[in-house]
Amino acid sequence: MIRNVQIQDAQQLVDIYNYYVINSIVTLDLVPFSKKDFEEKISLISTEFPFIVFEEHNEILGYAYANTFRTKPAYNNTVELTIYIKNSEIGKNIGKKLYSELLSELKSRNYHVIIGGLTLPNDASVKLHENFGFEKVAHFKEVGYKFDTWHDVGFWQLTF
């Protein structure tokens, strides 16, 4: 089931996220987050933007949310998306279900532009975004440094 995030989801969300912090370049965060960090993130983001989880048998298998793209008021109709799926659940269409719900909610709230920022390479995330109609609009070379290697970041855009 897909539902709105709750503060008590923080530990499961941080566990999903920290796997990627420790083991991959999907996120360029370098230090794992605490449960408290995610409680604050949930409280801050969910008051203004959609923040949803995919839950099955009382276990959260993925989450997605929209957040501020930039803080200047001229960007108020643009949001940036974040999505993470529990590593053991990749390939089960959870991301597709979460994005379908999230994008529908954003459209109903009259957002105009949706941005997805991806550390590259990331074929699964590129495919997810492009299947929803996102187009690659930017590619920044070697802007992130993790695991003793420089990484590129690309941005995909969807306009309603």
Rank of each mutant, 00 (worst) to 15 (best):
E39A: 13
E40Q: 05
S43R: 03
L44T: 09
I45Y: 01
S46E: 09
E48I: 04
E48V: 02
F51P: 02
F51D: 01
F51H: 01
V53C: 15
E55W: 10
E55L: 13
E56N: 14
H57A: 15
H57W: 10
E59W: 02
E59L: 14
E59Y: 07
I60S: 10
L61P: 03
G62H: 05
A64W: 04
A66H: 02
A66L: 08
N67M: 11
T68Q: 06
F69L: 11
F69A: 06
T71C: 08
T71V: 13
Y75W: 11
N76M: 01
T78F: 06
T78W: 06
E80W: 07
E80Y: 07
I83D: 11
I83Q: 09
I85M: 05
I85K: 02
N87C: 12
N87P: 01
N87L: 06
N87Y: 13
S88A: 14
I90D: 06
I90K: 15
K92N: 14
K92H: 13
I94M: 02
G95E: 12
K96M: 07
L98W: 06
Y99G: 07
L102P: 12
L103Q: 02
L103P: 04
S104N: 15
E105Y: 00
K107E: 10
K107A: 13
S108C: 03
S108A: 06
S108R: 02
R109Y: 05
R109P: 00
N110F: 07
N110C: 06
H112N: 04
I114G: 01
I114Q: 01
